[in-house]
Design a protein around this nucleic acid. Structure first.
Lengths: 207, 207
DNA sequence: ACCTGAACACCGTTCAAGT
DNA sequence: ACCTGAACACCGTTCAAGT
């Protein structure tokens, strides 16, 4: 009966690794910490799972299995596309470590694929087909995905580093009126900016 | 005459660190390698510059000083904004390590700020002002910056990992016609997609 | 089959000591 | 003022050895 105990220890190792990633991000995952948490020698991980990268893949597999599925809402294709964009963003915000892991392992395509298919369906329902439809799907995907990455980047900035607003407070440029300058010196509402950007893109993509 | 030698060694340490970052990215930077390259004990870096993070800041400062400035081209505000977007992307592609370092140190705002000011000027020239202008500037910034990050992410994906195209080849979804599916299974031309996305966004932002 | 211990080749950092 | 050497607390990984 080796396979029962085998899977038990293997599962405990993956669970411990997952807990570390969820608590401190990918950089918090260490072979030695995982081993210590399970009460085993670090080298036992190599027997059960493999190296650090194999462990990361196993953790990501477990996370993907628990990922909530996202559904479009709304009665028109346009509102449904906008709702998908918002759902993609919420999902990443709610499952950050899974996406960090996926990015590190080059498995981002896997995570975004369901959203991609859902988007394609709505874009087709909006009346686009062929190349025009593919361009629209990819455009929305890149904008939504990119927006999320920038937001994430901004969130993890070091304390003490200059923000864009602070830099705008000091600037005195010709050709830029006071109203614009003071607005740029104001913190960005990323929720509102996300909605605004997606809506403006859809204005043009869907005629 | 301490300050002359001081700066000489300090400069050599920063140059060596910069070379490592430019060759292998931030993860290629190690205190021990820098010290070995300069022919000094690792601990000497702590005397001259400080810890690893201080060294990274010093390298980034040097890189920023060498950054090419970007200028808008074209006769209409719209073409000038599009040219700025393209210039931002080329600059990041040409100076990747500087942006990687800036992202890690939370100094991304500093690097994007000149482009931000140039964009604001052109958006104002296009007739927008106040909140509408600020929204347009930020929207373009997030889209361009996000696009670049996604592209970069895609470029660094592990060999063997599933690409989006490969996943589309296997799918058989209702509501998605064959033409769209086969197009999605085709590799993305990111150059064309970038131009397309920026143009569609400007369609709506600039009326 | 399952796991340990010792070992190797790395890290960043501190600090007393030398000149 | 400038630098070294020893030391500490970490890494991931390999491999022979044990049961």
């Amino acid at each position: 009966m080796p396979s029962v105990d085998e899977r038990a220890t293997q599962q405990r190792l993956i669970d411990a690794a997952r807990a570390l990633v969820e608590a401190d991000g990918v950089e918090g995952l260490s072979m030695r910490k995982v081993a210590a948490d399970v009460g085993v020698a670090p080298t036992a991980i190599y027997w059960h799972i493999g190296g650090r990268e194999a462990l990361m893949h196993a953790v990501l597999d477990a996370m993907i299995a628990d990922l909530p599925s996202l559904a479009a809402r709304g009665s028109t294709p346009r509102t449904r596309i906008a709702s998908l964009a918002a759902a993609m963003r919420s999902q990443v915000l709610a499952t950050g470590p899974a996406h960090q892991l996926a990015a590190e392992l080059g498995r981002g395509a896997e995570l975004s694929f369901p959203a991609q298919v859902a988007l394609a369906r709505e874009v087709a329902a909006a009346g686009l087909s062929g190349h025009a439809a593919a361009d629209a799907v990819r455009s929305v995907l890149f904008v939504v995905g990119g927006f999320i990455m920038i937001e994430d980047n901004y969130r993890h900035r070091q304390p003490g580093s200059r923000t864009t607003q602070e830099l705008w407070q000091a600037v005195g440029e010709p050709g830029i009126d006071d109203d614009l300058r003071t607005t740029m010196a104001t913190p960005t509402d990323t929720n509102a900016l996300f909605t605004f950007t997606v809506e403006r893109l859809l204005d043009s993509l869907l005629d």
